[in-house]
């Protein structure tokens, strides 16, 4: 056991657990309150097209999917705010198109050695130092952004029209939030995969909202919850010999419903 703990892949995995907890605990708060949960899932699926495009063009799949997803998220945000497209319809279109594009490009490139399962379901034990550094950069950017704009983001999430007429630059903030959301999701795909990442986008804030009515505590609970399910899921998958990403998400879902039952029974809600 001591040997495993000292191995680089395990150190990277634990570092990634800490970074992911801070990233998704915070991101989830704004995604859930702005009712953009489905957008998170859509952006993650869009990453598949980006990865395939990277393989096709010979660009690093991480940077290709990062650029592709940021562009897709920002374009979608603009289409919704300026042209009246609904998020549901927009995500449906982008989602299907990028999955289709990915499938075509992989077939054309004949990239059969491509680790499809790794991208779809993640592999935290395959996290490299490069992945950890990229996630740490995303962490600095997200916390800098929230540190500067927390209350204005809160206002925008609460009442966008009034925030705008009160002087908040809602268009610019929304674009930055969407770009950061795409970047954070891309860094998390390596851990739990494209299919399961939407759970990390939705569950932390949903859990926090069960336990508190104070926005700072909701964020704090979200971070703690994400850390608990990531480390707990990692340990459980080691013991049970199950896929790590799937174990993390299953544990997270179970913990969420347990908390919901606890709140209903003991806090009389």
């Amino acid at each position: 056991m001591r040997e495993i703990i000292s191995m680089p892949f395990f150190v990277n995995a634990i570092a990634m657990c800490v970074i992911m907890s801070l990233l998704f605990g915070m991101l989830s708060f704004f995604v859930v309150l702005r009712r953009m949960s489905f957008l998170g899932a859509g952006v993650a699926h869009t990453a598949f097209g980006g990865v395939a495009l990277g393989l096709f063009l010979g660009i690093d799949p991480f940077f290709a999917s990062l650029a592709f997803c940021v562009l897709a998220a920002v374009t979608l945000g603009r289409l919704v705010s300026r042209d009246g497209l609904s998020y549901d319809a927009g995500i449906g279109i982008f989602f299907a198109f990028s999955m289709a594009l990915g499938a075509i490009l992989i077939a054309v490139r004949k990239a059969y050695s491509f680790d499809l399962m790794g991208y779809l379901f993640g592999n935290i034990l395959g996290v490299t130092t490069f992945d950890t550094v990229m996630a740490a950069i995303a962490l600095v950017l997200l916390y800098l952004f929230v540190g500067l704009y927390l209350h204005r983001l809160l206002f925008m999430s609460f009442d966008e029209d009034v925030a705008s007429t009160s002087g908040v630059r809602t268009g610019a903030l929304d674009t930055l939030l969407l770009a950061l959301m795409a970047a954070v999701i891309i860094t998390g795909i390596k851990v739990v995969g494209i299919i399961l990442i939407s759970a990390l986008v939705v569950l932390p804030a949903s859990f926090g909202l069960l336990l508190s009515k104070n926005f700072r505590l909701v964020i704090a609970w979200g971070i703690l919850y994400t850390f608990a399910i990531m480390t707990g899921g990692l340990a459980l998958s080691f013991v049970l010999d199950t896929p790590t990403g799937a174990t993390i998400v299953s544990l997270g879902t179970a913990l969420y419903f347990l908390a919901m039952a606890f709140v209903r029974i003991f806090m009389n809600k």
Binding site: R152, L154, F155, F158, A163, S166, G167, G208, K213, N214
Partner: peptide, 14 residues
């Protein structure tokens, strides 16, 4: 998750 005070403060933060 905001109080009445938080809501009123929003316009000043804006």
């Amino acid at each position: 998750p905001v109080t009445a005070y938080d809501v009123v403060a929003m316009s000043r933060f804006a």
